[in-house]
Design a protein around this nucleic acid. Structure first.
Length: 427
RNA sequence: GGAGGGGUAUCGAAGUGGUCAUAACGGGGCUGACUCGAAAUCAGUUUGGGAGCAAUCCCACGCGGGUUCGAAUCCCGCCCCCUCCGCCA
């Protein structure tokens, strides 16, 4: 959410930003919200003046009562009571206008970083880096479910009976590999100075509203019946929510946290659960990294967070490339975003979106009231998040890239301690 | 989930319908004085949001409603904390 004062002062900047995002349908919102805000402030001024009058009058009544001048007090009471209707109506208008302004402001996207490439949709995202040697094996790589099943590691049929499509049982070594990857990811981030956290897996709506755009919310979030609680789609939401309504001393920043959680997503959006297997599922687990920092540091942190992802996948010998989200594909709250994609030897292309690194500028901080104590007044912090690793999707890339012709899977050195010392999986 | 108690600034805490909200009282922090320096002492200072060019004003006593000329104070709903009981990994 933008600052209304900023929008008022720079309507053209805001409009240009909307155009770059190819959200022309939202252009009229800018003038609309300026007009509404104008009305709001005028109503506010009148309401406040009236309140000031009432407060002064009420104080007088108190004084008159004290002096036992009851008649005068009664007269004054009647006078103020007569203001009641005007006051109530102004108060009503004030609330209504404020809500309208807020609702529109929520639909006006965050100003992107100038470095974001222009484009209309995900087809125009820009490749910015590749790491690792993409291997094209001489033998056929089976579909990931077949690889997993060859180790008796996946049972989708049972999951369909217990929970429906989009769920899975991981079994045996594949399940162990899943845990191993998460444990390794946790330690990888701890080694980089991040504090390990396990957050709540359910959060309240006011927190969700602070961290997500409205569209995402509808398509992602599972609600708990009869409770103001929602299953988290990512621990980012709990972790950023942790800082709600806080004023943070400068010395406490940056906050660098790495969190583990299961993630629950309806996946109602574009694709739904169509891919067979465990690529797109309603439940997965994720190690995440988040940073809350000074505004001037956020772009530097963005690069560092992205660097962590690249290093992580290189340490597991999975070739990756990085795509930058173009203007038209960038979420409303985001200032800049990189997606990290893993190589698929089976499909012979970078087919797996393994992670997503974003800086949200002050968008989440503004909505949640995450401030930094300044010597001349407080200001909003910046927030960032990035995936460390999210299995079981990541296991697909892992298995494809480490599969040998004889059907065994090599375990990279670094994961072996987490796999009981095993150097390979064999059926 | 049941019963009881509670939620006021940086902390403890007073205030139970007006002259008590920057908010008593106490502690902490910061600034200054004294000191070679420190302790002790003394003085000053120390919430957040909003409107306005400004003077200034408005809002906030866990959150949201209500009663009232006026609510921290009375009423209703919700959240959180503590104690006891129940339940549970």
């Amino acid at each position: 959410m933008l600052d209304i004062k900023f929008l008022r002062a720079n309507p053209e900047v805001v409009k240009e930003n909307i155009k770059r995002k190819h959200q022309e349908d939202r252009l009229p919102l800018v003038d609309e919200v300026i007009a509404l805000d104008e009305q709001y402030r005028s109503v506010l001024a009148r309401a406040e003046a009236l309140r000031a009058q009432r407060n002064a009058g009420s104080k007088e009544i108190g004084a008159l009562m004290g002096q036992k001048k009851l008649e005068e007090a009664e007269a004054k009471k009647a006078e103020i009571a007569a203001m009641g209707e005007a006051l109530a109506s102004l108060g009503e208008q004030e609330k209504e206008l404020a809500a309208k302004v807020r609702d529109i402001m929520r639909r006006i996207p965050q100003i992107m970083d100038p470095s974001v490439p222009l484009g209309k949709d995900d087809s125009e995202n820009v490749e910015i880096a590749r790491y690792g040697e993409p291997v094209v094996p001489a033998f056929e790589i089976p579909y990931h479910t077949d690889i997993m099943e060859s180790f008796a590691g996946l049972d989708l049929d049972s999951a369909r009976r217990t929970s429906g499509n989009g769920f899975y049982f991981l079994m045996g070594d594949v399940a162990r590999l899943h845990s191993a990857v998460l444990s390794y990811a946790r330690d990888f981030m701890i080694d980089r100075g991040f504090t390990y956290c396990i957050p709540p897996f359910m959060i309240r709506m006011n927190v969700i509203e602070g961290v997500m755009s409205f569209a995402d919310l509808q398509d992602m979030v599972y609600k708990i019946q009869d409770e103001d609680l929602y299953l988290i789609g990512t621990s980012e939401h709990s972790m950023i929510g942790k800082f709600i309504d806080s004023i943070n001393p400068k010395e406490s920043l940056p906050q660098c946290l790495t969190s583990y959680s299961p993630c629950f997503r309806k996946e109602v959006g574009a694709h739904g659960i169509e891919e067979r297997g465990v690529f797109r599922v309603h439940q997965f687990e994720k190690q995440e990294m988040i940073v809350v920092c000074e505004p001037e540091d956020s772009l530097a942190w963005f690069d560092k967070l992205w660097g962590n992802s690249v290093e992580f996948f290189r340490s597991l010998d999975i070739p990756v490339r990085t795509f930058e989200c173009c203007s038209g594909d960038l979420g409303d709250l985001k200032v800049k975003q990189y997606d990290v994609e893993g190589w698929s030897p089976r499909q012979r292309k970078y087919a797996f979106e393994l992670g997503s690194c974003s800086t949200l500028g002050d968008a989440q901080a503004r909505r949640l009231g995450i401030r930094i104590k300044g010597s001349n007044g407080n200001y909003f912090a910046h927030t960032l998040n990035n995936t460390v690793v999210a299995p079981p999707r990541m296991l697909i890339a892992f298995l494809e890239n480490n599969l040998r012709e004889d059907g065994s899977v090599r375990i990279p050195e670094i994961l072996r301690p987490y796999m009981g010392g095993k150097s390979e999986l064999r059926a």
